[in-house]
């Protein structure tokens, strides 16, 4: 059996076991076969689809955000430049909605991550039987449509005949009207969002823990680490990429929150649970100010992009 020479090993940028049997990546600077444009030809179908269904609509949206279009007739689409953006930044309702989105971030992002991480670590350490059923149950809320989650929780929290308040009343409490109280409505929405998302976080973390090498846990045990120290020294660092995924996905959900709120409070009471996506919808379709609504959508997209990149930058670096 002929062994590969050290030179040929240096030319391989990835282990052969990961890159497919018998395939060797060319070394940097080596000659390519085929014309220069050939790779672009392979990309062309995807590029065409991306251009038609992503790039063009985004560009169209940005252009429309610079008009005073009513969303009904193209005749009304008069050019206003950055007027819609200026109006948004001077609109107290925009800032209320933005503030509400920011308030939801701890509930939609951090809380489900923590709630998912704890059972993931415990299940891993305790080696529970039937964990798959447990996982499926936890994941269920995540695959439910947001509107359905909203309707279910609206019923659960109904102050007259909902089971939550009925139970609290039987226990001698005087429960509030969760979704109609100006101070409680947004945190309540936040808790519903956390409930809906923590199963997703749990499943991602469990998958991440599974791929952490066993010898790291064995080494930690040999060094006398307890469960908590094992979690801090092995599990948590090993989950850095999963944490980045969970935080960025949850962050996007927090910023685009719409369906649960529409189905529970419709932004009320007052503007207490109004968020940018709902404000955008009401502006574009309720008040027939589509240009303004699209400008809000553009702002929301930029904020989401920047914050997501920030999260990935903080948590999603190389393992080295």
């Amino acid at each position: 059996m002929q062994h590969p020479s050290p030179d040929s090993l240096r030319a391989v940028t990835k282990p052969a076991s990961q890159s497919g049997a018998g395939f060797v990546f060319p070394a940097p600077g080596s000659r390519r076969t085929g014309p220069r444009w050939e790779p672009y030809l392979y990309l062309l179908p995807a590029l065409l689809v991306f251009t038609a269904f992503v790039a063009v609509p985004i560009a169209g949206g940005v252009i429309l955000s610079l008009t005073a279009w009513n969303g009904i007739s193209w005749d009304t689409a008069t050019w206003v430049g950055l007027g819609n953006y200026v109006d948004a930044f001077n609109d107290s309702r925009f800032w209320t909605a933005f503030r509400n989105n920011v308030t939801l971030i701890p509930y939609f992002v951090l809380l489900p991550a923590i709630l998912g991480l704890i059972p993931a670590a415990l299940v891993h350490q305790m080696k529970l039987r039937g964990a798959a059923i447990f996982q499926a149950g936890l994941f269920l809320p995540y695959i439910m449509p947001g509107v359905l989650i909203g309707v279910v929780w609206r019923w659960m929290l109904n102050p007259v005949f909902g089971p939550v308040n009925q139970t609290l009343k039987r226990m001698g409490f005087h429960p509030p009207t969760w979704l109609a109280d100006f101070n409680l409505a947004l945190p309540t929405i936040g808790m519903i969002g956390a409930w809906a998302a923590y199963g997703f976080c749990y499943v991602v973390f469990v998958a991440g823990i599974e791929k952490i090498p066993r010898d790291l846990y064995d080494a930690a045990k040999l060094d006398g680490a307890g469960g908590w120290q094992e979690f801090l020294a092995v599990t948590l660092p090993g989950l850095r990429r999963e944490i980045a995924v969970v935080l960025s996905v949850n962050l996007i959900n927090a910023l685009r929150a719409f369906d649960v709120i529409k189905a529970t409070t419709d932004g009320g009471p007052g503007d207490a649970t109004n968020v940018l996506a709902l404000f955008m919808m009401n502006s574009a379709f309720g008040a027939n100010q589509a240009g303004y609504g699209i400008a809000i959508a553009v702002i929301l997209a930029i904020v989401t992009l920047v914050l997501s990149l920030l999260v990935l930058r903080l948590f999603g670096g190389d393992d080295d």
Binding site: R154, L157, N158, P159, V160, N165, T177, W178, L179, A180, P269
Partner: peptide, 8 residues
């Protein structure tokens, strides 16, 4: 109604 603001 008690809780009118919290029901549809």
């Amino acid at each position: 109604l008690q809780g009118y603001d919290g029901i549809t």
